[in-house]
Design a protein around this nucleic acid. Structure first.
Lengths: 206, 206
DNA sequence: TAGATTGTTAATCGATTAACAATC
DNA sequence: TAGATTGTTAATCGATTAACAATC
């Protein structure tokens, strides 16, 4: 087992392995091989073995990987062997959809609070959560200890809000606003922008 | 100028450059350098120059890049110098939010039709679009010539629908379902899964 | 002109793949 | 045991960076 810094590109594949293993587990499969998992996720068997070997020896020669065990290991590695409270900032259509999203439960996250700056939205309930005033963003996040947020405000407001999130001690921002954010190195940002995804495909179309 | 196959990883960065350039343009900036653009998108200046040089000589020594010209080139390269009709499959919360999303207009896409399999939703209007029956998915997509779709159905239905999309001649699938899809090589898939994004960040948290 | 910045080359760095001994 | 599959090594492949002549 290797104890050096793990390359980001390897880390970025682990959640994909985990997602697929959890689906296999739910469908009653208990054992898999790097070959089979690779076919399911579209990655070579050699690469899956190499990726996993960075963290330990999780398989058995001849039989492959016992899925519940491998899931457990990946959950620990990714630190989703717990439930992270997440805040959603911006209660537009996207923010709404995220607050209502049912898919986080068994993947390590739950929405814990949500915010907006619009006086007509503040105080309203969304999926059972009272919409908080972004003026209290830093205070509320600090008090709750929330480290991960989903940012769903308009692009024009995103950097300003991101600065506040950093000040509030947030360490991970899932950014739905179509803009590159500037944050300190200790804060991670992941981007979700459908137009970017679409443009990455149209390049290849006739 | 290079005429070989362009690596996927370069293609995947171009939409990020374009997004940032368009924002700079809107804010009145007309010229930039690889240095400045790199700071904004978080990529080295050398890499930006190298990436762009795959497609032509778009800058001028001493002065950098004229933004409207570079935007135009990138739009042509990414084939978003036109408007692509896109279908949205699945009118849950996420599908709803996407149909209502305003951000596609100047980025090369527009929602043209939407589908669901739920009889209580079929025929209803969502943001002005009548929800169509997924039983007509292949026929409707073929007739419209739609090549790009956003897939927002539950994970359990996603592969089955993807198979139909392939049959209908769709070439790009932006997949919001939390599952890896299996499609022929000529069909591109991009994934949007918030839990994956979150797990890619929690790894780095204490 | 002097300063700035490109496009490109060569060097470096890192990731992927192929192959296989070990072993279940 | 025989067959299957891992974890790991070495080889290959590809991407990034540094440096600089060209030139605006």
């Amino acid at each position: 087992m290797n104890t050096q810094k793990i390359p980001d590109i390897i880390v970025s594949r682990l959640p994909v392995y985990l997602r697929t293993l959890q689906r296999m587990s739910v469908s009653g499969i208990t054992t898999t091989s790097s070959q089979e998992l690779g076919e399911r996720v579209g990655i070579s068997a050699a690469q899956i073995r190499k990726d996993l070997s960075q963290f330990g020896e999780f398989g058995k020669q001849g039989t492959g990987y016992y899925i519940p065990f491998l899931i457990d290991k990946l959950r620990t590695i990714l630190k989703v062997d717990r439930i992270w409270d997440v805040a959603v900032i911006g209660m537009g259509d996207m923010g709404h959809a995220i607050v209502r999203y049912q898919g986080f439960g068994d993947r390590g996250f739950q929405v814990a609070m949500c915010f907006d700056s619009d006086p007509t939205k503040i105080g309203q309930k969304v999926a059972g959560y009272e919409v908080r005033d972004t003026r209290n963003l830093i205070k509320d996040l600090r008090e709750s200890g929330i480290k991960v947020v989903m940012l769903c405000v308009p692009a024009a407001a995103a950097q300003e809000v991101a600065d506040k999130l950093v000040e509030a001690g947030v360490r991970g921002i899932l950014n739905y606003a179509p803009i590159s954010l500037s944050v300190p190195a200790e804060v991670k940002v992941q981007y979700i922008d459908p137009a970017i995804g679409l443009q990455r495909m149209t390049y290849y179309l006739p």
